[in-house]
Design a protein around this nucleic acid. Structure first.
Lengths: 206, 206, 206, 206
DNA sequence: AATGAATGAGGATTCATTCAT
DNA sequence: TATGAATGAATCCTCATTCAT
């Protein structure tokens, strides 16, 4: 099936972009790793940038939509929403660390204006959703008066920091340098617990 | 003077690397922006990578040494040390946002193995220093029993997240998209306050 | 057909290497002379050095194998073998003067260690084969007690000397400077006759 | 003293040109090996080619003049002249192998037209001188009717062949690969003896 | 007389892409 | 639909040379 080959290329591309960055990855590298013809990438995605866009666009959507959902869910309390969002981020980031590394690179590097804009806008949208939750909590007096957007930065920032390097994580956990902490369920729980504790004691009274 | 031209090139290089990444920056770009001959970069730094190394090596040293100093200062209490480190990071990152963007990229991208290793190792050293402070505080019962390395990740992660995009900061602050939030003393105070609050309520009892 | 273009490049490369040497020949030169794109050379041969290796490796094999054959042929007397080798060298060198100029350069210049080694080793192998013929002749008392390896040096040296410059040959033959003596069957016979006479009177009694 | 430094550069240049060829030797290489400033070479010799010319011109003169002398010496017989020329060549080539390697390269490579011409012309002049000796010998019936210019090619060719690679010589002599056969008086005698035997039995009756 | 700094031209190579099949 | 061959533009880097001092 066609789509399968396309997906295969996308997977390998995410790997490579995460390892080497967009500019650092050549189409030849990718063709080799994905075991396809050099011309395939252009054939399927038009441009190297086209491939990159497809990767970014497809995958930001899921998280964005889920956050939207959580934000507007009327059955959840504010703190429940915050907790869900924390779990969501840790979960998704650890499940697809390569992809989120690519996103982080894209936020840092402004060169590819269009892509950068897109990622930033998604981030702003997520921030706004999160802010609205916090502010509602503040109005309801269940949360302390905190700096809402910076709270979001703290959550995302912590996860991103963890994502930066497996090697650093292994220094924390005492594993060998090549151990894949991201796949360790124990480590995931530890990270969620930490962030929740930090955010709870920051948001909640007593 | 010799050093002046070299410094000028380094400055412009940091700008460009931050904007476009290492691979995304061509020596021609740099020569144009720095208004020097293309051959100058190789003349001064041998290689594009040589220039990159010089940038990274020179500048990681300062923060690393300062953290070392703070860690081993016997006149400071643990919470004072934590506060100083928070201030240090916010201060340095906002003062040299471009440079720290370059560092972040280098942590993400593993391609240039040697550099990656170097940056990671510096980070590990800083983490270890910070951990020792927290653990001493825990032993003294001035700090709650927290996950020390993740606390560090939260601090650095928050600052890095802020650093990712001026544009996002301006959404927080209500400024126009091109406003330079990093140079705004008000914003800096706000960021320090936020992080201190988060960390204090996480570390300290009541 | 694919091989045709590759062969065409190789031919023109031999010409240029013979004229200008390896380092003196630029890929641009070659691309121009062979009327192909600059990228073609790297496309086909990977490296300029790769092209060079292919040229050398392919072409040393033929002579080496033929000498091996002659050496171990049981139907030939020693003097017949010597004569065949003389004819072989003159024949091949005059037929492909450019290629053998390239080989000579490679023996002189030690810079490209790997290639130099290869050519030298082939030469040593040929020398050893030749020596074994001479020594057998000496044992059989059909040859005088001569310095076998130097006899080989005399044969090859004479041909190489001729190869060095068409212009010098034309001084001998009384032709105009641009006449191609190497293609002159008369000249070839003259050269073979000379070498055989020299070697015969050196090797044989009376 | 000035001339000393110049000579020093020339010596190192001969070494490098012999190792790497003209194009393969960079002025920076040379400046490093000779431990002088990069600008010195241009300062003293104008151009890289200027340096090369000076090397070639200075040193061809000596042999050329000596051959002229021998040729026109009325106290010597023809065979004595031939013997002296053989000794002269072996002597000079083994004494300055690097320099003669450079000359050989120059004969092979036609790129630097002017230099090539010069070396070839010197060679032709030497050939003509030698021819006149041989022809006189033939007229006097002390020599057989031989192909004079090819006799010269045999002499020079043999020495040049030896010069091509120390390594090959060591295979003859049974020394280790890095032994300097050219400085071995024994080897020199052996070479002279061989060439004289070859030429004598070719030229002389009985 | 001598040199460190600087440079334009050109070196080999790799790039993303296109095209004929 | 899929691909090997081919390419022009751009890559980093090195070159011989010059110039101000």
């Amino acid at each position: 099936m066609v789509t399968e080959k396309k997906m295969h290329i996308i997977e390998k591309a995410i790997e490579l972009f995460a390892e080497k960055g967009f500019e650092g990855t050549s189409i030849r590298d990718l063709a080799t790793r994905a075991e396809v013809n050099v011309a395939m990438v252009n054939y399927y995605f038009g441009t190297k940038e086209g491939l990159f866009q497809q990767i970014v666009e497809e995958s930001t959507a899921v998280t964005r939509n889920r956050i939207d959902e959580i934000t507007h869910d009327k059955t959840l309390s504010e703190i429940e929403k915050v907790d869900l969002i924390i779990e969501l981020y840790v979960d998704r980031f650890l499940a697809q660390p390569d992809f989120h590394k690519v996103l982080q690179q894209e936020m840092l590097v402004t060169k590819r204006g269009f892509m950068h804009e897109k990622v930033i806008n998604t981030f702003i949208q997520n921030t706004n959703n999160f802010n609205s939750i916090i502010e509602k909590g503040i109005r309801k007096k269940v949360f302390k008066k905190v700096d809402a957007p910076l709270v979001f930065a703290t959550i995302i920032g912590t996860v991103n920091q963890i994502l930066k390097s497996k090697k650093v994580c292994n220094v924390f956990t005492g594993h060998a340098a090549d151990y894949d902490a991201y796949k360790d369920e124990q480590f995931k729980k530890r990270l969620i617990t930490h962030i929740k504790q930090v955010i709870h004691s920051h948001l909640l009274n007593n």
